[in-house]
Simulated assay, not measured.
Amino acid sequence: MSKTEKPLSTLWGCELNESNKEESFKTDDTNHQHQLALRTMCLGHTAKDEFNIVELITGEGNNSAKAVPIATLHAKSMPTVNLSGLDLHPPVTFRLKHGSGPVYVGAEHVALEEYSDEELDEEMDEEEEEEDIEESPVKKVAPKNGAGKRKKPEKGEDEDASDGDNPPKKGKGRGRKPQAAKV
């Protein structure tokens, strides 16, 4: 029996400010692979007119830890930054190196959960059944008294034809009158 990994995703976020300069994302779970997919960093509405520099510290310990600035935010010129596509493996720490914030970090925590092939097949079958139920079309029932049927015109009958006694009818759905060209 082989094992397959299925991603489970949850929202993760933090606030960096004068009283909370650092926030870490780490996990003690060794049974699953974890990833932090960054989405955005933005200043709060109370941010001062100053530069706010956020750095990312990856790894643990003094030897392997590496700090890299990833965002410089300013209330008037750059209040938010899109970081989609930046996927990190824990442990990672966000530090407000300069400024007083508040800076909000928004990310997605993805954990890969292991499933056996049998469990995954059963779950996929259940999802397909749910989709079939949701996507089944509604049957339309025709009225029994014939009220919904259109009457076919008889041969030789033309609605737009004009004879002297019956001019063509005017009304909705008969097209627009041509407009005179403006010079």
Rank of each mutant, 00 (worst) to 15 (best):
D117Y: 01
M78D: 05
P91G: 05
L36S: 02
E50W: 15
T93E: 13
V110M: 02
A71C: 11
S100K: 13
E50I: 14
P91S: 08
K76L: 13
E60N: 11
L83Q: 09
N62M: 02
S116A: 05
A75S: 08
R39M: 14
I57D: 02
T40E: 13
S77I: 07
P91C: 04
K66T: 02
G99A: 15
I57T: 05
V68R: 09
T40Q: 14
D49P: 12
A67R: 09
D49C: 15
G99E: 09
C42L: 14
H89I: 03
Y104E: 13
V105E: 08
L83N: 01
D87R: 12
N52C: 14
A111G: 00
E55G: 02
M78R: 15
D117W: 00
L96R: 06
H89A: 10
A37H: 14
Q33W: 07
G99Y: 15
P69A: 06
G61E: 05
E113G: 00
V103Q: 04
L112Y: 00
R95V: 11
G101R: 05
A111W: 00
A67W: 09
N62W: 06
A65L: 00
K48N: 12
V103C: 12
Q35T: 07
I70E: 00
H109I: 03
G44P: 04
Y104N: 14
V81K: 12
Q35M: 14
A47F: 09
R39Y: 05
T72D: 04
A111T: 00
S84H: 09
D49F: 15
L73G: 04
L56G: 05
G44V: 10
M41E: 05
T80Q: 14
H45Y: 12
H45I: 09
H34R: 00
Y104I: 11
V105K: 10
T72I: 05
L86E: 06
K66A: 01
L56H: 11
F51S: 14
Q33S: 10
G101T: 08
V92P: 02
V105H: 06
V81A: 07
T72N: 07
A37C: 13
G59F: 03
E114G: 06
V81H: 09
H89C: 09
Q35E: 10
D49T: 15
S100L: 11
T58D: 14
A71L: 01
A65E: 08
Q35F: 07
N82G: 07
S84P: 07
G106V: 08
A47P: 03
G99I: 10
Y104M: 10
A71W: 01
T58F: 07
T46G: 13
Q33K: 07
N62K: 13
P90M: 01
